[in-house]
Design a binder for these strands. Sequence first.
DNA 1: CCCATATAGTTGTATATACAACTCTTGTAT
DNA 2: ATACAAGAGTTGTATATACAACTATATGGG
Lengths: 152, 152
Amino acid sequence: MKLEEELKQKTFGSPYRRMAVNVMFTGNWLQKEFSCQLKQYGISLQQNNVLGILRGQYPNPATLGLIQDRMLDRDSNATRLVDKLLEKGLVTRCQCPDNRRKVDIVITEQGLELLKKTDTIMQNLEEKFCQINPEEATQIGEFMDRLRERSC
Amino acid sequence: MKLEEELKQKTFGSPYRRMAVNVMFTGNWLQKEFSCQLKQYGISLQQNNVLGILRGQYPNPATLGLIQDRMLDRDSNATRLVDKLLEKGLVTRCQCPDNRRKVDIVITEQGLELLKKTDTIMQNLEEKFCQINPEEATQIGEFMDRLRERSC
DNA sequence: CCCATATAGTTGTATATACAACTCTTGTAT
DNA sequence: ATACAAGAGTTGTATATACAACTATATGGG
């Protein structure tokens, strides 16, 4: 559905305004699509994101700082996200022996198993973007990168 | 900055995955840019959004249902957002005389004044998208509309 | 060695989001 | 009329987000 119908608004003033609103709206929409699907496995989008980061490091541990740096939403509180994953047995956490300020976080077997399942979800959802061909997907990605460049 | 540097990730598997992650990330980034600027006026992005909707109806009243339908984030609780605006004297709220289930919400002079200021902020931010020309902005908007079409 | 400063996490708190349950009002079928 | 379902908001609660203050540890200069 076009943005105008979606928000019942006739016009957005400028193409820039329409673009900005549309990117925010579509980003929110995407997050809801994903998190809605993830709910059946009892984890949130951010939690899944953290698990993915930990898999990237596996079998090495990651610190909270490293996780925070790579999260989609940097302001989510990594400590508490990891708390949740710990409760579910998806990660282990222990004080780093070299530097006791740090904590080493490692994904568990169970966490890796769960990721396999959520990967499938993600893939299925991505296959539904059939209105966009792969070249366009690439182009959209490039546009997003440029949108965030604010050197001026 | 490219998404790969931003999230310190080498690759995103498929162009669709990269696109999806990038739209979510960029949408969040945009929302933070805007809400950060709005903070100086003591309102949130959603509150500003509601004020804009009310201005669209002005001088007619809007009901909560109408507001909810047009909000960028539909799950935000319109009742409580309006509460906040009411506290600040930016809107008035009273029971609709025709149908006492409804409430009529109208933006105040003060609310309209505030919107003038936040409009400027928005415009300034939009002008900073200098890496994107107007034609590209239009194209991005169209891509977003198509991305949300999931007829298959 | 001691102190100031920087680092790495944790905790607290206010606000926002998601979702369900609840209240009051209206419309409709018997 | 009366009862029952639908409509429009409100409230409650659990979780998440934003941001600041706090604790513990490490480092480097006098």
